[in-house]
Design a protein around this nucleic acid. Structure first.
Lengths: 151, 151
DNA sequence: TTGAATGCAAAGTGTTTGCACGTGC
DNA sequence: GCACGTGCAAACACTTTGCATTCAA
């Protein structure tokens, strides 16, 4: 049998499960924050996370939500998305590399998985001596709802 | 003589000149703000613009700088660039479409003109009913200076 | 002359911090 | 038990706003 077992095991797609696997100190507060973030196409602001968290755990403090979100971002379990005006958003999808499609009127945001992204490499002549890392792409447009409305 | 004169006149690459052509009400304050922004690879924060402006016009108010930057952005003569943490930056290059290359350690930012960008169209199946507009791309990396330093 | 721009200070957002208290491992 | 997380309030960073004054056209 081929050595399939040597492949690195697939990461769980559940944020909460991944945190358990890291033996992250799990408090009720941290749990409700992680639960608030779980799902697809989820891009909540800190305040929206707080609103969801406080429903399940009324005594949670806003600062704890901020602390927790910062920590999750620091260990790479959520991605901060800061675009345009307004507060940062937090994206729990860290398993599948993806980009964002955003409605410029209402701010609605979807994860997208564009093809052919490798064609986007920056020519050497344009690198200004930089060592390249990741590439972020944002597709701006109008969502179905907003493009149907008048002005 | 060939009808060169029928070509649409090239837009000036000088912000200040373009503003004059628009018959923008030109006050000393607005002039020093526009002058602060002029140049290539310029991506100043509002505070940095204020610092430059106040050198030439000590009585200028921070609020005036903010007002002016917002107005320039509204009429499309500067582009707001909000990425990562920290304050927004203002990019006076609105003539040549371009993208950005940013050092993830020190924040240094260069304008880049990547090739093959049209290949980045989002497949219909990924559009979620959106009408597409412009695409923003950010190349993250380490600048020459930062990649030479230790930790 | 006059509508628009300015300066100032105050208010508004969004986020971080300092510290006493509480708790998961 | 104790290092670490939490709650609270105050501080902080960035930006906008209201209003009386000044000024470019």
């Amino acid at each position: 049998m081929p050595n399939r077992v040597l492949q690195s095991p697939p990461r769980s797609t559940s944020l909460l499960e991944r945190l358990r696997q890291r033996s992250w100190r799990l408090t009720p507060q941290r749990r409700v924050v992680a639960e608030a973030l779980d799902g697809e196409h989820v891009h909540l602001t800190a305040d929206e996370v707080y609103a969801r968290a406080v429903r399940r755990l009324p005594e949670i403090a806003r600062a704890t939500v901020y602390n927790t979100l910062n920590e999750l971002a620091a260990i790479g379990e959520v991605r901060e998305v800061a675009l345009g005006p307004g507060p940062k958003r937090y994206d729990p999808e860290t398993v599948r590399p993806h980009q964002h499609l955003i409605c410029e009127r209402c701010g609605a945001m979807r994860d997208v998985y564009p093809l052919g992204e490798t064609q986007l490499a920056l020519p050497e002549s344009q690198r200004h001596g930089f060592i390249l890392g990741r590439v972020d792409v944002v597709f701006w447009g109008l969502c179905a709802h907003c493009s149907a409305r008048k002005p």
